[in-house]
Design a protein around this nucleic acid. Structure first.
Lengths: 189, 189
DNA sequence: GACCACATGTAAGGAGTTACATGATTAA
DNA sequence: TTAATCATGTAACTCCTTACATGTGGTC
């Protein structure tokens, strides 16, 4: 139920906003933290209103509804932040593939790992561009916390790429030692 | 649709097994890679059979059905391994909380981050125990790939803990500089 | 005979994705 | 006037979780 708290958090930090406003923020700021689709978001706003955690502060043109967090919403956000242990992410497609690398030939496996490491490099570069583009002059508020998240991304990609290279090297080493023991009849490949 | 491929992968590596066998393996080996519940697993086995990717090789006592991967299942597994780009995990409850740390007082935030870093330490220790308990003598096969995954876990926890400590330090530093500019009326806290 | 491990099935609901659908306002 | 942006709603589907449900075979 984290979408709920993402919405509460944004409304708390912004002081209020419409579903549309929030949607843009999800795309801009939370895309690699907690993505949400339009469909999901509007549904959640309805549920949050019904639960009394947010309320409609004003109505504008084009059916725009400006939401605002309520006191009980603020309480709930705080409770979630400090008292609810974050649920670790236990699914990882890349790990699953690596777990089954034995189904590939060593050459295929190394090719796969190299490709993945390269793909990570591209994403890391894109992240670095985002980080450069943001104006960090402002102090406090969301931008600062966004900086923490960007730094996480940087460390994550770095760790991930190093690990992929390490696995590739391990496989290469294993293959080399196998080759040494039983010389290949027709060379490697 | 990765559950499907997790099942295919296990059946490929094992040479076959019942739903019950696979369930035990999911709990034992894939719990931090791609967890699956009993309910999900039996459902998927049915769908995979219908799709012709696996087949019932034998029936045993207690209604036991021993599944085996088919040639088209092997093809599909291989295709998934090399041709389908892994979908990155874009949701992280911890990152979401850090994004909203501004809703807490600096003291609360630092307390939170310290707790999280400690929790990671406990999980890292548990992982290290698992790693020690496994017999790595056997060469190739699942155990070896499992080693890669364990090493990933080790690196992940380390990165994560370092990052949490870094964020806590950043917040402390920010608070210290704020304190210096405008001396607190009643001391910190 | 009782218990544990083996073995499978189903139902209800939450969360997320994709697609379809509609309309109002504003700026060029 | 036309296009882009603003603004919301809903339906269908997949995936995952939790819970309930049932029965068999081996071992003490």
């Amino acid at each position: 139920m984290s979408l709920r708290h993402a919405v509460l958090g944004l409304l708390a930090e912004l002081g209020g906003g419409s579903g549309y406003d929030l949607l843009k923020l999800f795309e801009l700021s939370l895309d690699n933290v907690w993505p949400a689709t339009q469909s999901q978001l509007y549904g959640e706003l309805g549920k949050l209103t019904e639960a009394g955690l947010i309320e409609v502060a004003a109505e504008g043109p084009r059916g725009r509804r400006e939401y605002r967090i309520t006191p009980s919403g603020t309480t709930e956000l705080h409770r979630w932040l400090v008292d609810v242990p974050p649920k670790p992410n236990r699914r990882d497609e890349t790990l699953l593939r690596v777990f089954f690398l034995g189904e590939l030939t060593p050459a295929e496996a190394r090719g796969y790992l190299d490709d993945q490491a390269e793909a990570i490099g591209r994403r890391a570069a894109a992240l670095a561009e985002v980080a450069d583009a943001v104006d960090w002059n402002e102090d406090g508020g969301m931008a600062d916390n966004g900086r923490f998240v960007l730094e996480y991304g940087r460390r994550f990609y770095e760790m991930r790429r190093d690990w992929l290279r390490w696995v590739a090297a391990e496989i290469a080493a294993r293959e080399a030692s196998r080759e040494a023991r039983e010389p290949a009849p027709d060379g490697e490949r």
